[in-house]
Design a protein around this nucleic acid. Sequence first.
DNA 1: CGGATTTGACCTGCGC
DNA 2: GCGCAGGTCAAATCCG
Length: 347
Amino acid sequence: MSTNSLHKSAVLGGAVKEENKASESDSGKKSGGEEIHVLQLEHKLESAKSEMNEVMEENQRLKMCLNRILEDYRTLEMQYKDVIQQEAKNSPTTIPTHQDHTEEPELIALSLGRTSSGNIRDERNKMPAIEKPDEVNEGLTLGLDCKLDVPKTLSQAETTSLNPSPENSSEEERGETRKNKAMSNAGEGGDDEILQQNPVKRARVSVRVRCDTPTMNDGCQWRKYGQKIAKGNPCPRAYYRCTVAPSCPVRKQVQRCVEDMSILITTYEGTHNHPLSISATAIASTTSAAASMLLSGSSTSGGPSSSSTTSNLNGLNFYLSENSRSKALLPTKFINIVILFTSDHHS
DNA sequence: CGGATTTGACCTGCGC
DNA sequence: GCGCAGGTCAAATCCG
């Protein structure tokens, strides 16, 4: 995970040495009239050193982050196995298999890690057909992929179409305009139709960071596609779309907090269907871990309809809340997970 | 000149 | 049914 950063620091270190050599040889040959040049080189050396230190610090943070995630994963894995064993003991004939978790009502499932994108079909494709190689889709993609599973009454065919897999989510990204969706709502089955028929809830992760820059550098490439003045907040809300991969369904909203203008609220929606950069992976995995922790807690204490759950993990404050439109003016199809960065963890 | 951003118009969902 | 607000589109504009 952090090997690229390590490599980066190694390369940086090499560059520093090179410059150091150069400055030494220069100072030996040249006269005092070129001291300015030597000073410039020393200045560069200092800046390179500080940059290297920053990279090393980032490496340390990423390592710690990875360790935390691995620990969480192992803990959850153990708990999962225990639950399986207990359920198998209690009612071995009636308990559904856990691969088929769609039969458990109100269960929130969060996937972290490999996502099998399946076949990205290209019906009604208006965008340039950029065929993604399978190995990209099968690569390690870290992202938030949360869903509320549907009640038992739904058929298997329906439940399989519910999963917000990249196949489904990418369908939104095939250049299909909302106009076309509206026109096709009566006939063809699109995401919106599915969502209307079935109460699938996608996760939205809000990251609140004290940040002076217009946007938080999260390692991804984004393209702005809209801006709105939201009610109750004079600061405009900007809408961004991930442009790392042409079919990536991930979007984010960026808005300043109305109470504290120095706080930047970045809301991520969707799952990346492409490999992420190191810093992006760190953020995605952190949010996923937080969401996993919170969702698992809330699902056992009354389900996601409960108002909110708060927790703390290594200096990060998390709370999970399902926004109802009347309260937060957000679509009810989303579960909103808010992450407060109380320390300067933003990249 | 191509890609990114801006911005007004339009669509959709929800509450009354 | 109407109005409002959020979200998206796409033409115009900007910028490197």
